[in-house]
Structures are given as structure tokens and as C-alpha cells.
Simulated scan of single mutants.
Amino acid sequence: MSVLITGGLGHVGSWVAYLLAKQGKKVIICDMAANHFERMGLNYLEEVRDQLILESVDMLDYHSVFEVLLRHRDELEGVIHSVSVIAGPYFQEHPFKHLSINAMGTLNVYETCRILGIQKVVNMSSGAVYGDAQGPQHEDTPYKATDLYGASKISGELYGLQYSDTYGMDIRNARLFFVYGPGKRPSHMHKVYQGLFGPLEGLDNIQAPNGSEQSLDWTHVYDTASGIIKLFEAEQVTHRNFNISSGVPVDHLKIVEEVASVVGKKTNVKLGPGPFVVRGSPLDISRARKELGFEPRFTDIREGIEDYYKWLQAAQT
């Protein structure tokens, strides 16, 4: 049997693909970047290349989505949907495009799976569905959108809940939070991420407009991917929504200090006043611990930063 991952060359999706392939599963990756895989520098996926099938698919092109899922339907355990435009200052610069990818792209996956009889889907959602509700945020915390990104994630969850109720599908939501770690170069990210982690890649003189007055539970990508797989592989769950994060809030200025300590020199980083995005923190991960056996490995941000630094150093050689 195999697992199909939409956005399987993205930061989180690629690690989900890697861990599943290491289990010996065949992984079908649907990603617009599939034709450029060899130039992406995802060395961990190259390690399991024989287990991967790459399909270049735009999630907004319903016909292409349908054709690919139809071709692989008979071998699929299910689908892990990870295509998403992440939260950031650029999201609101092109709202229709980004909302379409997050909301309509998700709906295209659900509808295709409904027609083809693919029952199990794990949707990568976000702690953004809680908005600025005070933490710890439990899965029963009411929906609250404080930006367009959060609204798009709420819509994706609601589509999934209704498809499950109406058509008997098994759609589960993994509510992720702020992810860092191997597979993503800080130089390819927004300014606040560069300010936090950029010196690990050798970036200097980073001036971010905000982010200094915030504490969030940043989660190492390995832990994020591991939690998603546990949710996917659970035979039965008593809930549909699960928080997947480190569960440990860390002040942004502490991350800057820890990064400087790891690289062994003073970093010229300045985070401006205020939060990066309007979010509460941390996520309460007790449900995932109890029902899925999820236990994040990198709860100490220092250990996660050291692991990230090793990957970035190796990737530059």
C-alpha cells in the first residue's frame, strides 16, 4: 500500500514523506515542484528516492488532481494534504490567490477523495484557528480568525468535518504551529524567521520589523512530521482535531540568544516591537499525547537549533 502526500516537497510534507518511506511505504508526492526535485537539495528525500513517485500537480487544477488520485486509487491507504500558503506578511498581499490555494485546494482534495472512495485524509491545519485566544489552547477552544490565513484554515477544517459527517469519510485535522528545522533555508523565509534562525545559515545584519515581543511554541519539523504520521496511522480516533506542536513556548529573544550561542559569535539581529502574527501560545498537546502516543523529541529549543545548524552546515558543503 502507499500514501499520497499533496505538497510532499514542502517543508513539513517532505519530512512526512521521508519518515513514511523509511518505514518501507511507497509515497506518492504531488507537488508543483516535482519536476525540479533534483535541484531542491532535499538530501534526506534523495536517501529514499526509490520509494517515491513524483507527480507535478497544481491543487487548484481539479482535473489534474482527479487524474492523479484516480491513477493511484487502488493502492492508497489514504491522503495527507499539506499544500498551503503559510502565514506571513505576504499572505495578505495576494489574498485571493492564497485563500484559493488554502481553501479551494483543500476542497478539491476532499471532493476527489469522496468521488473515488478514498476514505482517510489527514489535513494539515494550524493553531491559527484559535486566533489570539489565550493559551494553553485546547482543541475545544472556539474558532477565532484574527487574519486571513486563520480564516482559510478554519474553512478547510469545516469542509472536512462536513464531508466526514455527510459522506462517512474519515478526515482528521492536525493543527500545527510554527515549524523550523532541516529542509528549509532561513534565506528563503520571511524576515522574522531569518532573524530567529538566519545566523545558522550565515546570514547577518538582519532587521525584522516585528517579533521581539512574542513567545511561541516553535516545533522542530521532525516532531511535526512524526505527529502527523501518528495521526494518520491511528486506526481509530475519538476526536477529529489534534494539536501537534512542541507544547513549550519560547520567547523570540531567547531563540536569538541561543542561535548566537550555537554559532559561537555575536549576531547582528534586530527584531522590531510587537508580535510577528497575532497568536496565543502554547498549544495544549495532551490529547495527542494520550490518544496518539505523540511525544515531541525537541522540547528543548537548544537541541532543536543544534540539529538545524548541523543540517544547514552539511547542506552548504
Results as ranks from 00 to 15, higher is better:
33 A>I: 03
136 P>E: 12
111 E>A: 09
99 L>D: 12
206 I>H: 03
100 S>Q: 10
5 I>G: 07
168 G>P: 12
197 F>H: 01
112 T>P: 07
136 P>Y: 09
175 R>A: 07
182 P>C: 08
253 L>N: 15
223 D>N: 09
10 G>H: 03
19 L>H: 10
45 L>M: 02
87 A>V: 14
98 H>I: 01
88 G>A: 06
37 F>H: 06
139 E>Y: 03
216 L>P: 01
194 Q>D: 01
307 D>F: 00
200 L>S: 07
79 V>Q: 09
284 D>A: 10
97 K>S: 13
229 I>T: 08
315 A>R: 12
35 N>I: 03
101 I>H: 01
294 F>N: 07
4 L>R: 00
207 Q>P: 00
149 Y>I: 03
91 F>V: 03
24 G>Q: 08
145 A>Q: 08
249 P>A: 15
293 G>P: 08
63 H>L: 12
90 Y>L: 11
98 H>L: 01
90 Y>A: 12
171 I>L: 08
146 T>V: 15
225 A>Q: 01
26 K>Y: 06
270 K>R: 12
284 D>I: 04
93 E>V: 07
69 L>P: 07
238 T>V: 07
309 Y>D: 13
276 F>L: 13
132 D>Y: 06
125 S>I: 07
124 M>E: 02
161 L>T: 11
273 P>W: 00
140 D>P: 00
121 V>G: 03
157 E>V: 05
282 P>K: 03
65 V>R: 00
274 G>L: 14
166 T>A: 12
172 R>H: 14
50 D>S: 15
278 V>Y: 11
70 L>H: 14
167 Y>W: 14
130 Y>K: 02
306 E>K: 10
58 D>N: 09
146 T>G: 06
60 L>K: 00
217 D>P: 02
279 R>M: 14
208 A>F: 05
133 A>E: 11
305 I>Y: 05
168 G>R: 09
144 K>G: 05
154 I>P: 08
280 G>A: 07
311 W>T: 08
277 V>G: 05
293 G>A: 12
173 N>R: 05
182 P>H: 05
79 V>P: 10
292 L>I: 08
172 R>F: 15
143 Y>R: 02
256 V>S: 03
2 S>Q: 08
304 G>L: 07
296 P>N: 08
139 E>M: 02
75 E>G: 09
274 G>P: 13
142 P>Y: 05
78 G>W: 12
131 G>Y: 08
210 N>A: 15
85 V>I: 15
74 D>W: 00
262 V>P: 04
16 V>M: 03
132 D>S: 14
91 F>I: 03
299 T>V: 15
132 D>L: 04
69 L>Y: 10
